[in-house]
Design a protein around this nucleic acid. Structure first.
Lengths: 339, 339
DNA sequence: CTGAAAGCGCTAACAG
DNA sequence: CTGTTAGCGCTTTCAG
């Protein structure tokens, strides 16, 4: 295979200088005659010249790439619909504006080993942390210490950090909406099914439910399980039912869990919502189809991604973030699984 | 903010040459004394030096990045569970081996405008085409003509292309498995619900069903709709039922469609599988939870991603692909929605 | 309107 | 064991 053509090849073929070709490639009209331009463009087409990103970045100090680090213990991190929609929004908004998205799944505690961190090759970093708050803060500090703009997804602001923007959905508010909805019926005991690894968004949802349930004197227990495995979810709930009997309300950390719960309850002869009310969370298309229709709140994960991308693009163009924090609200989706 | 440290800063601070620092950074032990090495490493830590990818790539002609172009009319392209799992597998396998994955969603016909194509900044390209075969072949030719290794996901090989590897699941075979299963009961008319935009994988599924249904003299009709919208799916099926009555079998292009179909059939007083048998496709966790449990086949989209990544890594290391084609089979998941 | 030249950060061959 | 040097492809300034 022949050598990849460079500015020099094109210049040689056309008989002009490298500088001139560069101008044509970059659409700089000033100082290039129409004739020269046409000749150069012809040569570019014939040779199949494509500008070399590295050369360009090295010179211009811009990479036109944003790095996304998703901290998750599961190699299938992307399979979660929230993440998926987030990434889609990010990717689209960036791609549309000439930027690429460099994806990096990172195991907890291994962030510092990631190429994204160890090498400088992106213009900004987008971080979706997980784990306990302490770990998350450490991750944010690490990423922020790189001297690059940082956008944190789905976690609360850390005051000490500079040049950072926090983008998340109002998970506590969404949980409060759902809890209030559930409170329309008499209720003494609620159970929430959550992942066995701590996620910031889930912390916030828990806080929202707790706030409202506490006010109404409702007891809130938890079932922790591997949320990526529907069998584990079902087993966890079954075990709880065996020990404590049926609660009045079963709160899923997300829709997938709620649906698995409904199926299990039905298989035990419990009717939803007559015997147990069930709520979901996020309402992505296809993950919220159930009978009865799920009572849940709608996430705007895609918009979250778009918002994050827009914030980054603004920061890169203007030198500073427009806002320090973006908080997107969730919308109530009244179904028939509760109250 | 102070200047980003370079090899030169570190060399200056330590009082050694740039070349020596470079060796330390790259773990080249030959020709560097332990003392020097320690001093340099200390300086690197203090300054927070991170190698500049562009400089390195420019010199070494390797980017350590693979580009993924997903051709899809929907900006939410990633939200499809198949794509999601594929990307997760790709990303993980690449990340684990020191490579990054550069994500690009591309509108049909706009591939040639993508930065991935217009600039040279990745070591290989991974392409997931959509549209009619003709368009897809054009996309493959375009990507292949770049003089870079190419991996095509989910499409049939094009013989004329060089330095290309084709990775896909055996969608026709999976469909045949399902069709044979359905044939265990008497059946005269089948309806398949498919996306209104052509996807290679769906073409292959259609071919598989057709083959078996033809052999058994079963008539196969199609309902085309916007598969990303559950309302559109439901409406499409409802319309068909109104005109033609209930078929014996309803074949979903994927599980999401099948589940939506079951809900609609139930709402019309039709029982599954007694009145209508329903089959899904792909069996991703959470998209296949339904009652009755879905009769479907299990995709290995994640493994597909891993396979593609492994093929690329091998190609980059050894100069040629190990195999021209990888075909992953699907596994029957017997449920109770059919026969 | 066009070209010569400097230099972005890095690696590797070679000289000391 | 360490340093000097050339050059990867590109943009941009400045001189012609």
């Amino acid at each position: 295979m022949r050598e990849r053509p460079t500015l020099r090849s094109v210049a040689l073929k056309t008989g002009v200088s490298i500088a001139t070709v560069s101008k044509v490639v970059n659409g700089i009209t000033a100082g290039v005659s129409a004739t020269t331009r046409a000749e150069v463009e012809a040569a570019i087409a014939i040779l199949g010249y494509r500008p070399n990103r590295s050369g360009r970045s090295l010179r211009s100090q811009r990479h036109l790439v944003v790095g996304l680090a998703i901290v998750d213990p599961s190699p299938r991190f992307l399979a979660d619909p929230f993440t998926t929609n987030l990434v889609a929004g990010l990717s689209n908004q960036l791609n549309t504006n000439g930027f690429g998205l460099l994806l990096h799944g990172v195991r907890p505690g291994k962030l510092s080993e990631s190429t994204l961190i160890r090498q400088s090759g992106v213009d900004a970093i987008c971080l979706n942390p997980s784990g306990e708050r302490e770990e998350r803060v450490a991750a944010m500090e690490l990423a922020s210490g790189l001297g690059q703009p940082l956008v944190v997804i789905q976690d609360r602001p850390v005051d000490t950090l500079q040049d950072v923007c926090f983008v998340r959905q109002d998970d506590q508010g969404g949980a409060e909406l759902l809890a209030e909805e559930v409170m329309k019926r008499p209720c003494r005991r609620a159970v929430m099914v959550i992942a066995d690894i701590p996620w910031p968004a889930v912390e916030h949802r828990v806080a929202g439910f707790k706030k409202v349930f506490d006010r109404h004197g409702v007891q809130l227990d938890f079932i922790r399980c591997d949320e990526t495995n529907s069998q584990a979810i079902t087993d966890g709930i079954a075990d709880h039912l065996d020990r404590h009997g049926a609660p009045d309300v079963l709160v899923g950390q997300n829709d997938q869990i709620a649906i698995a719960a409904i199926h299990l309850l039905n298989s035990r002869g419990l009717e939803v919502p007559r015997d147990v009310a069930v709520t979901g969370y996020n309402a992505f298309p296809f993950t919220s189809i159930s009978s009865p229709p799920l009572t849940t709140v709608r996430s705007r994960a895609y918009e979250l991604g778009v918002t994050a991308a827009t914030a980054i693009l603004h920061r890169l163009e203007h030198g500073s973030f427009q806002q320090r924090e973006y908080l997107l609200s969730l919308e109530m989706v009244p179904g028939r699984s509760a109250p």
